[in-house]
Design a protein around this nucleic acid. Structure first.
Lengths: 351, 351
DNA sequence: ATGAAAGCGCTAACAT
DNA sequence: ATGTTAGCGCTTTCAT
């Protein structure tokens, strides 16, 4: 069913139906009423595809994430879909499973769908094909991970400082041996975090030991495997920084399965501050990413571009914040003794 | 840019370009090659909207979930988008935040986009407007929650039995006092689970006490609040069934904040078996929903409908499975003594 | 205030 | 094997 049959039944031209649908003013109240009644009676719904074809606007944006099951991405998706909905924008969601080919395919699909812009949360450092989109003026915003050398808008937190501070925190707590579990290696996030970790050790005059850096993949399983390898170490570090919270939890679980507890056996800090980190039995100290603020910033950048803004790329870097819980072994008294405020998280919500 | 300019530059008709694009056989290799080269050179991408308009097929399906941040839904989204991608289908995702109006609005939007079918994971019992879609022959599949009286395809687990068995398990472990934290009340899932809980107590001759049933909303916060109210009880039950895992974790966290530990203070069982339930420090006993199987079944039903199948609605009910961890206070020895296999979950993954 | 007509970029007969 | 033509269901001038 289409607007033409509505027109016929209402005894008007199809153009008039279109005017009613779009709330144009130049249509008499009686006519409008009549048209609306027919629409109602037939339960007619306009075809957005045809409209988009005619207007060359789809009001749709593409959202590409690595893995929706990672709660960090789930939170981003939630925030962005909410903002989009409130702006009358629709979202086409793609999950790439950290797969280059798949991601490229998805981007292609999005462009075929004539989305008005794309938000990508999961670019890898060698996804340089993105570079070809941007110079064409196609609106792209990178969130969470960025692409050095690619002139695209981006929103990230200061991962370097986040990791640096987390490692510093370990050192101040008295740890002279600190390890690291990596995330996906060819991502800006992992690169910056690993750099922050190394730099903090260097500046403290603590050598970085290769054997204390484990591979991971921003996943529970990656952290678990790292934990198993950690356990086989002759000399274990007393503290471990993990590339994200999921990794940290996997790491903790591996120790747990062998009867070791955190922070007694090892101190652990993660990255993201997903809700799981705050679950009390876990109590993960972590570097928070302000997801909502990131999503808002990303949507603002993207909508600016869609609105025609074509200035230089803007890079938004939000601050990282260390959220102290129990997994780092910090004791509130320790902070008190040093005259610092306790940074302890999770005030008890009252109803 | 459109296929017409490709045609011009390649010196062929636009119909031929279309043939190349659709891999039709009736086009000479040389022509095809020439066209492909122009396409490549101009980096041309066909317009799916126009194609859909012409073919009346969008290859797109709508997916409506309550809340992507709930890992159970995240897993459903992940599974369904993967299956869809493998079938060349695209997904438009909507998150309703348990809001009737919003959900209705989203469904309308999906129909405007001419999706070829809709998968809904979050219908509420009074979402009877769905009823109007189905008789029109529009493909709709309900997953997780169903709508009694609405003749739509659906995929659920046997929530009644799941809750019944979980409660039975408590009773067999010696608990004579068992409480329940609800999910969203006007959902089939909560209704069936609550019924299973009540029935198990009834059949054991244990009275159901109103004060031991708390409201929740399938959320951490709901569980946490229930936990706080639980703590104010004069006579507390010794075991609590929770409507989902998130609720259970919130409940556990509330107790934890007051210094009580699970299962020492109370035994707890959840529902879903999301990954969080298996995190070792939590170790939540729970009723598993086989998410992947549910997603596959749902997609199969939907694709059948899209393919033209128009038989009677099919209701698929998958079995629920109790996954034993430590939060219910079960001890492997206990099972051993009774000559039962231990059902304990989470075999240690080795790399 | 309303209608007629020309597109939007594609597919799908129908011709040749 | 290729071209011509008529839509798909809208929006948008341009008339009236």
């Amino acid at each position: 069913m289409n607007s033409r049959v509505i027109a016929q039944l209402a005894g008007v031209s199809q153009a008039t139906v279109s005017r009613v649908l779009n709330n144009r003013t130049n249509v008499s109240p009686q006519t409008r009423e009549r048209v609306l009644q027919v629409i109602e009676a037939l339960n007619y719904t306009p075809n957005v595809l045809a409209r988009s074809l005619a207007t060359r606007k789809t009001n749709t944006i593409g959202l590409v994430v690595a893995n929706i099951k990672n709660p960090f991405f789930a939170e981003i998706v939630e925030s962005i879909t909410n903002i989009a909905a409130s702006q009358g924008m629709n979202i086409i969601l793609c999950s790439t499973s950290q797969d280059h080919r798949l991601q490229r395919q998805h981007v292609r699909m999005l462009i075929e769908h004539r989305v008005q812009g794309i938000i990508m949360t999961s670019v890898m450092l060698d996804d340089s094909y993105i570079r070809t989109l941007v110079p064409n003026g196609f609106p792209v915003v990178l969130v969470n991970r960025y692409l050095p050398g690619v002139p695209a808008d981006s929103v990230v937190i200061d991962n370097y400082s986040g990791a640096y501070e987390a490692t510093r925190h370990f050192i101040r707590l008295g740890h002279a041996t600190v390890g690291y579990v990596r995330g996906v290696r060819n991502t800006s996030t992992n690169r910056d975090r690993e750099r922050g970790y190394r730099e903090a050790l260097n500046q403290a005059g603590i050598p970085v030991r290769r054997g204390w850096i484990f591979d991971g993949h921003y996943s529970w399983q990656g952290g678990y495997n790292a934990g198993l390898r950690f356990l086989r170490l002759r000399h274990r570090p007393t503290a471990m920084l993990c590339a994200d919270d999921l990794t940290a939890i996997g790491f903790i679980d591996a120790l747990y399965d062998r009867g070791l507890r955190v922070p007694d056996a090892v101190a652990v800090i993660g990255f993201d501050d997903v809700q799981e980190a705050s679950y009390r039995p876990i109590g993960l100290t972590t570097v928070r990413q302000p997801v909502t603020a990131m999503a808002e910033a990303a949507m603002r950048l993207l909508l600016d571009r869609i609105g025609g803004y074509c200035g230089d790329p803007r890079q938004i870097v939000l601050p990282a914040e260390l959220v102290i819980r129990k997994s780092c072994g910090a004791n509130p008294l320790w902070y008190l003794a040093r005259g610092e405020e306790t940074l302890v998280a999770d005030a008890v919500p009252v109803n």
